[in-house]
Each structure stands twice: as structure tokens, then as C-alpha cells.
Design a protein around this nucleic acid. Sequence first.
DNA 1: GACGATACCTATTGGTTCAAGGTATGGCAA
DNA 2: TTGCCATACCTTGAACCAATAGGTATCGTC
Lengths: 128, 128
Amino acid sequence: MPEIVSSRMAPKSSNPDFLNGVPELLLLRLLARRPMYGYELVQAIRLASDGELEFGEGCIYPILHRLERDKKLASKRETVGGRSRVVYRVTPAGRKKLEQQQSLWEQTMLAIEKVLHGEDDRGNASIS
Amino acid sequence: MPEIVSSRMAPKSSNPDFLNGVPELLLLRLLARRPMYGYELVQAIRLASDGELEFGEGCIYPILHRLERDKKLASKRETVGGRSRVVYRVTPAGRKKLEQQQSLWEQTMLAIEKVLHGEDDRGNASIS
DNA sequence: GACGATACCTATTGGTTCAAGGTATGGCAA
DNA sequence: TTGCCATACCTTGAACCAATAGGTATCGTC
């Protein structure tokens, strides 16, 4: 069974990771505005959303590490008042990824809106 | 360690299931418009979103079964042209759940928008 | 000296989605 | 009549992400 994929390349693994990847998107967006450190980002998300969004540190740190490993972020260690911080900033590659992710996000939201508020296109009244 | 939860009841397990639960929301929304069967729903989502959303049957069927088990949906078996279909419709409880879920969804989307497009409120220029 | 806030980190668990398979009927074409 | 595709249902397994729950260490205050 040769499985014809026809002309379309890029397997398009499936759905755009929908809703997953929101924390990652927010991190990239916030860091694109100015460099921040992990603990600060956790609170920035809570503050910016008026407390409605709240990602824990156990969620944020692994994402920061992964993004840095993938060269989307770069970090430098700072010491302020005896406290050590790891400040992250977006790299050019990170900025590119942000644009892609944000575009994908908006596109996906529009698609969901279409289903939520779409008229029942089915004029097909085949069933009584 | 007593762990003070203060005055707020409802453990609020954490975040509003963010982005998970989108398929469930779409199913409830579509079924609230008119009864449909599983195979039909899979394609309805694809059509209504112009092909941008595509949840497989392996995603849809388990959700339908769970919603029915929880009395949010009711089903009846139909036979059309020798083909057997399980047609689902929303119960009053299902309609209530839809309203809650959709409201939560919109609220969460607004919160994400706040973070994505929010100005950097931090006038706090404590760091050079 | 104990505690809370700051600041970092990781391991384990749990929930959801996805890919892949499995069953069965009807219609059409070779 | 044999094969194949579309219809229509279903379940299992892996993969992935986020949440919980821990663990370390410093600073300031009571």
C-alpha cells in the first residue's frame, strides 16, 4: 500500500498543537519586549492577565531550558543583592519562532471561532 | 503545614483546562444546533473550519462516550440504508455545561490576549 | 533562629490528543 | 464475484504537555 500523499509535502503532523504551547508563546512574547528571569516571568503572566492565568514554576522553567537549548533564547547570570538570577532574552531565531507561533495561534483561534459562531452551512436537509 | 486556602472555595484545580477541552467544546456547540452522529461530527468540524481543524475519530468518539456517561448527551441508534448510526443530542445538563465552557473559553482567550497585546505595565524601572 | 519571599531546579504524575489498528455494511467497478 | 472505497463504529498505545510536589539556597525581618 504505497499510501499516496499526493502533492502536499510537510506531513503536517496533525493539528497545530492547539492549545498546548500557550505558555511557550507567552514566554516568547514577554521576553521579546524585554529580558526577564524565570521567577519574574511567572509573576508577569499572572499580573498581565489580572490573575486569570497562572503557570507554575514547574511549567515555566522546563520551557525556558528547552528554548535555550534550541537557541531560541540566550541567558546570562546576574547577581543582584546576593541573589542570583538567570536573565533570558530572545535570539533572532527566537523572534522568528515567536512570529510563526503567534501567527499560528491567531489562525487557530479564528478557525475555532468559525466553528463556534458559524452558521449551520449544511443547507443539506436530506434527513427529515 | 495547614495550607491556608483563605476564603476561596472550589480548589480551582489550577488553570481552566486552557486549551484542552476544545474538542469537547466544539462537540457541545455543534450538537446544540442539531443532533448529529460521530462520523458526521468529525467532518463537520473539518468543514466548518475550512479544513484548518481536524480531530480524528480516535479523539471524538471517546469524548462522546464520556459526555454521554456524564448525562451531558443522550444517544439513540438510527439505521439509514442498512447503516447504523448513533445520533447524539445535548441534554439540558449538556446545554448548561456548554454555556459554562464557552464562557470560560472566552474569558481565557481574553486573558491570553491581555498578555499578548498588553503594554508593559511595569513602570517599575528599578533595574537600569 | 524561624519564617516568608526570592530564586532556581527536577522528577513524577495525570490528562488529552493522536496515530494506528480493528470490525462491519453498502455501492461501484473491473 | 472480487476488490476497493466510503461510510460508520470502536479501542489501544504512544507521545506530549502541564501540574503537583518536592528539593536547594539566599536575604530580610521578627
